[in-house]
Computed example of a mutant assay.
Amino acid sequence: MFAFGNGPLSDPSLSLSRFLALSCLPIKFQQNPNFETSQKGLKSMWNYALKGFLICLFLKVYDYSDYIHPKVIWVVYSFHIYFGLEIILAVVGGSARALLGIELESQFDEPYLSTSLQEFWGRRWNLMVTRILRPTIYDPVLNASTAIVGRKWASLPAIFGTFMVSGLMHELIFFYMGRVRPDGGITWFFLLHGVSLTIEVAIKKVIKRKWCLPRIISGPLTIGFVLATSFWLFFPEFLRYNPMERALEEYAALGGFVKDVYKALTFKSLNNVVQTYDGEK
């Protein structure tokens, strides 16, 4: 996150609290927050309320999973994960605004509206990771490739290298989550998307927007490709780690820890009161 002096932690004016927040949380501060950005956040409340309602609806759908095709359940699950992430990150952003008086950059921008892989990965999906990978992987590979293939085509190896690193990062993250030996499915998912996005960008450079598909066609094709490859390579690996069960176990352990601490503090306070009363008596 220092990224050779270009990352979010490289700003020497960061306070200790902001430095720690950037280091430990998946957030990025807005450089020039304005009134329009704040209004956009306020206007999105109905958006989040609708997504919260859909999550509740999805939880009810899971009760009938025995009667629904597994692929349909996976589609529901993918939207469930996405909506859940958006709501959690919105709560984090609201808390940061209320407690620290800072605006956080958004993590997602309605990725289901994407009309190309370039738009999906570069401007709509998991933007925090995009902002981290650009100065750490994309820009160095771009600069190195420029001297070899020229500026026009240097972005192609930079794109592929970024996706390759992202795949390895996800393999490491999933191994940390589940302690299950990876078999490369996640890496293949990102390599496939890296190759596909590289081809897409190369075609765009050749045709130079002389011809393009209408949004009504390119949108479903893009999301369909993302979902199909996710079902093929990503979700089987993701579900192999039993993430929901592990998450619930960790939440239960955290709840038990908080409960034990509360009991200990309450018991200690009660003892202090009794001792004080006995002393006065």
Rank of each mutant, 00 (worst) to 15 (best):
M1V: 11
N6T: 13
N6V: 12
P8H: 05
S10Q: 03
P12I: 00
S13N: 10
L14Q: 06
L16T: 13
S17R: 11
S17T: 11
F19R: 15
L22P: 09
S23R: 15
P26C: 06
P26H: 11
I27S: 06
N32F: 14
F35E: 14
T37I: 15
S44L: 02
W46P: 02
A49Q: 05
K51Q: 12
F53P: 04
C56D: 05
C56I: 06
C56L: 15
F58Y: 14
L59F: 13
K60A: 14
Y62H: 08
D63L: 12
S65V: 12
S65Q: 15
Y67H: 03
H69V: 13
K71H: 10
V72S: 14
V72P: 02
I73E: 01
W74H: 14
V75D: 01
V75K: 02
F79N: 12
Y82C: 07
L85R: 03
L85G: 12
A90D: 15
V92C: 11
A96M: 15
R97C: 05
R97E: 03
A98W: 14
E105T: 11
F108H: 07
D109E: 12
S114H: 09
T115G: 08
S116V: 08
W121I: 14
W121C: 05
R123T: 09
R123Y: 04
N126G: 02
I137L: 11
Y138F: 15
V141F: 03
V141N: 01
N143S: 13
I148A: 11
G150Y: 13
G150V: 11
K152D: 01
A158W: 01
A158H: 00
I159F: 10
F160R: 02
T162D: 01
T162Y: 00
T162E: 00
M164C: 12
M164D: 05
V165A: 13
S166K: 01
L172M: 10
F174Q: 03
Y176K: 04
Y176C: 03
R179K: 13
R181W: 10
P182Q: 00
P182K: 00
T187M: 15
F189R: 03
F189G: 01
F190Y: 02
L192K: 00
H193T: 04
S196R: 07
L197A: 08
T198I: 08
A202T: 10
A202L: 08
I203F: 13
I203N: 06
I203P: 05
K210H: 14
W211F: 09
C212A: 10
R215M: 05
I216F: 13
G219R: 14
L221C: 11
I223W: 06
G224T: 06
A228H: 13
S230F: 08
F231Y: 02
W232L: 14
F234I: 00
F234S: 02
F235S: 00
E237R: 01
R240S: 15
E245L: 09
E245S: 07
A247K: 04
L248R: 08
E249A: 14
L254A: 14
L254H: 12
G255Y: 13
V258S: 07
V261H: 08
Y262F: 09
L265P: 04
L265E: 15
K268R: 11
S269G: 07
L270V: 08
L270Y: 07
T276L: 09
Y277I: 09
G279M: 05
E280C: 07
